[in-house]
Design a binder for these strands. Structure first.
Lengths: 219, 219, 219, 219
DNA sequence: GATGAATGAGCGTTCATTCAT
DNA sequence: AATGAATGAACGCTCATTCAT
């Protein structure tokens, strides 16, 4: 299996997530991808463009997955569940990539940041839309919609910091739990989601490094 | 007013928070503090020690404030409220410092990271203790205590990303709201906190840059 | 018409003359010749050998043309006129190549410079011979033969810097004028060249890029 | 004797003149100036700015010296003699700097080239002015004024290529000879300059490396 | 206390060249 | 004949840090 852009992105995400973009040298990047640092420039125009390609792919998929979740129902509670589930699922499945996309916005030059920030804003607006409509039609109840949105997003994003594919909890459990927390926060009535399959199966990005092996059936 | 360590820390936090530690040069630090970069070494042993001093002060105060909140009552719900209130209050009042302390753990060398990580762990254990005891005595109800803890902390930490002292919401309102979200998540009964003054007035660290002017009473 | 060595040389001369040898990359060379930079190595052994081939062709032709001019008469004044005419004609017709051959001697490695310098010296000796013999037999009169030679050569070489095939002056006019300046400098009597056709029609080298279109007969 | 900008310029001129700007590395520059390459950046903003400072100083002095020569008389023949004398004197005294200023115009970025080219044009216009006025008032006679100007300048500039301070000819002799060639080319009458002291004593620029020791009186 | 000068190491990037295809 | 992929070396430049003044 030869080197390709995906492998370079994986190596980059791995290093950017742990050391940070600025603290990662391109010689390190090359070494992690198994190539000479000069060769890296056959795959990517510059260190920043490498970051941009990673972030764009990530944000594109977040928007796509979130939008799809919203299209699956007109019911605010179900939309919310789908969106939270998508957010948590994506974040847990693409932990490092998601972290890089979140943390390294500041590393972008003025030439690239606005574009990426616009994608991020577009993604966040999905949450704002659902919450606003749900509150308007009386499906959600909270004292402050904005704070609820920020808290919900932050909570879900935090999954990137602790989720382990080989850990105690399966992804579906985490998704379920976060949806239930969201319901509590927004005072969604019990049973509103009974029988509804809102769990979204996330895609793994090409840039996401291979996760640790899931727990074997030790029995 | 001449230059002192506090001013250097403020300048450093301001830059570390926006550019990141690795992307901030010591000439920039000097310029931001109004001194020559060589002079900076009279105030601080090295760039990393500057970061360490900022992080230690920050974590120390977080632990102190959180511990104090726990000592104010033996009631789990009240302890939780105090702790959340302290966390949110501190984070909102020391936004940039808190962000640096969170983000830049990875920038530390192996010589310093364990010490700082230990402080962070100690702080997080305050949350674990409260939740665990509260669950044990039946004050809280949730399917997974660990996820609840992680979600609550992440939520509160996120305040650093959006709170504005001159914004729509006063700090007390935010603290109240986050306590109420925590109660919902942990199914704390309504009225449990009625009449209890759990709002903690946070201290501002010397390292925290001056915030934007609070909104004038234009009335 | 496919790519061949001449085309590569033309591209090289064009770039070497404007950017200089050291500042011209091999990818630029390839692009200018319409081929991949790796393919370039099928036509030339290395970047330096490309320069050597250009310079050798150039100096060979200068020597050939100059020598031929000298063989056309035994009269010093006529020899001088022929040599100047050849020099100016060649330089004007092969502007860029001549410039490269002059400027980039310094770019050669110790392995190649002596060879090329020897050719240059051989060419310059043609001027020295004519002047020396002319002075000896009393055809020329000047206070310093060496300075006269250097001035005459430099003057003629300078034509490469300003001559335009589509400009105000036809090449023959320039050749005539430079011969007449040489005569003045060396105090050659008026009428010495009357009726003598000393104008040399120069050859264009394969390495010389196509000149701008000569002025059309708008009449 | 400490390092200063002049020493850096000297080192730079020495290398730029022999290897060319593009072929000279900043580590070489540092070594030639006796400092670390990083230290070089305390004296100069960038490699290009170093070249610019050299060229500007050079062209400024050429213009100053040439203009001064023109101001010394209203007589075209005398003005011409002064200008040629200044040109040759300056070029011989600042051989390497003059060569760099001439050759390396092409090495400048688009940001700096126009400024330097404007200075060069201003200098060349001094020659054009003198020749044009002299021709108008009948002091000079030639078939083409433009070619005469170009030839005269090129001739004088060429002095940089061969003059040796410790050589056979003293500078004054060279200046005299070049003035006399100019007079022949422009058909200035004999004796027009008799008794006139047109020889200009040139200044040596700070950027010009120390010349070889003048010949000792070995007797 | 404060700074300009200095440096070795490292930065992101480009270089001329090679080679399997 | 032609090229995409590859590389070690070098590029111009900035880094955190030291030190004499």
């Amino acid at each position: 299996m030869s080197v390709n852009l995906g492998k370079v992105q994986q190596a980059a995400v791995s290093l950017f997530a742990t050391r940070g973009f600025a603290a990662t040298g391109i010689r390190e990047l090359g070494a992690a991808a198994g190539i000479n640092s000069a060769t890296l420039y056959h795959y990517v125009g510059s260190k920043e463009e490498l970051l941009v390609s990673i972030m764009r792919d990530c944000l594109d998929e977040m928007i796509r997955s979130g939008s799809e979740a919203l299209r699956r129902s007109a019911e605010p509670a179900i939309q919310l569940a789908g969106l939270i589930s998508s957010h948590v699922g994506f974040t847990a499945t693409n932990q490092l990539t998601a972290r890089v996309a979140e943390y390294e916005m500041r590393a972008l030059s003025e030439a690239h940041r606005p574009t990426m920030q616009a994608l991020r804003d577009e993604y966040e607006s999905l949450f704002a839309q659902v919450l606003e409509r749900g509150a308007r039609v009386g499906a959600f109840s909270t004292e402050d919609l904005t704070m609820a949105r920020l808290a919900l997003m932050e909570m879900g994003t935090g999954v990137a910091h602790w989720f382990r594919a080989d850990g105690r909890l399966r992804l579906e459990e985490v998704q379920q739990y976060f949806v239930s927390m969201a319901c509590r926060i927004l005072a969604v009535e019990d049973g509103e989601l009974d029988g509804v399959d809102f769990v979204v199966a996330p895609r793994r990005l090409a840039s996401e490094p291979d996760p640790p092996q899931p727990r074997a059936n030790v029995s």
